[in-house]
Design a protein around this nucleic acid. Structure first.
Length: 290
DNA sequence: TAGCCGTGGTC
DNA sequence: TGACCAAGGCT
């Protein structure tokens, strides 16, 4: 633990943290969990309205578990990666069945829930229950890569060295560790950004190895560009949007209309059914899952 | 483990 | 303008 790094970032966070609803004093563990799932690969600005509507409608895990999973998929709207909605519904069900309706507080129990991996388990345990865990998301990995390794970007996949580094920086006191975790994430989101870091606003610029090295440009393998137009993903998105926007079941021609290539369309539709995002009815129509 | 899984904003 | 990016997880 190095207070020379942690203290300035904690102080910076106290002054500059965004006022986000899932950080409010009255935020529930369920609200924190919902926010973490929604925020996976999705910007805060797009999550905010959906989170508010979601929490209004389903203030508890039990409330969500009482409804068909298709309602979760519909309420997910255009957040993207709709399997997250399905898994969040499954997690709500598991919380009711296995944890008496309460979001579990142990990292291990959280990890057992569908759609919750190492990051999200650590985030919920830290932010909802003030525990001490290394919280390694894309923001934290980037901050630590620059601050401690003089690299512009972290490695493509997470390494044990990164985990060890994050653990070594964690303050010993659990509530302080939890605040530190959210503080580093916030620093990465607002100052130590991927594209154009605002180093002039950085509270630890004097300690930054990347800064000292002259901010060398990333020289690793090319960071994968994810093309989208024409992919199965785009096709799936179009098909699911038809079902989301419809009141009830939809006839096949309505789906055929949104994608011209029949081979790709059928493949995508089959995959949506296999994923449980689409329910093929006996009468030949399609619906969101019951 | 690399590839897959949505969507929209940014520069 | 199009490539890159945004609080990952699963197989």
């Amino acid at each position: 633990m190095s207070t020379a790094i942690t203290d300035p970032i904690l102080d910076w966070y106290d002054e500059h943290a965004r006022d986000l609803p899932w950080r409010a004093p009255d935020a529930t563990p369920w609200g924190v969990l919902v926010s973490e799932i929604m925020l996976q690969q999705t910007p805060v600005a797009r999550v905010l309205p959906v989170w508010h509507a979601w929490m209004e409608r389903w203030p508890t895990a039990a409330a969500l578990a009482a409804e068909p999973s298709g309602e979760a998929v519909r309420a997910w709207g255009r957040l993207g990666y709709p399997r997250r909605a399905l898994r969040l519904h499954a997690t709500a069900t598991a919380i009711v069945e296995r944890h008496d309706g309460e979001v579990p507080s142990s990292h291990e129990a959280l990890l057992d829930l569908p759609g919750i991996g190492a990051y999200t388990a650590a985030a919920v345990a830290s932010f909802a229950y003030r525990q001490r865990h290394a919280v390694l998301d894309t923001n934290v990995r980037r901050v630590l890569a620059r601050l401690c390794s003089a690299e512009e970007y972290p490695p493509k996949s997470q390494t044990r060295a990164e985990v060890r580094l994050a653990e070594s920086l964690l303050p010993l006191d659990p509530p302080t560790a939890a605040r530190w975790s959210v503080a580093v994430m916030e620093l990465g989101a607002l100052v130590c950004t991927a594209r154009t870091p605002r180093c002039v606003d950085c509270p630890v610029i004097a300690r930054c190895a990347w800064q000292r090295a002259g901010r060398p440009a990333y020289d690793g393998p090319p960071r994968r560009g994810q093309t989208y137009a024409g992919t199965d993903r785009q096709c799936r998105g179009r098909l699911l949007a038809v079902l989301r926007d419809a009141e009830g079941p939809v006839a096949k021609p309505a789906l055929d209309a949104v994608w011209s290539d029949p081979v790709q369309r059928e493949r995508a539709l089959d995959a949506l059914v296999a994923d449980g995002l689409v329910d093929p009815l006996d009468d030949g129509r399609y619906a969101l899952p019951a």
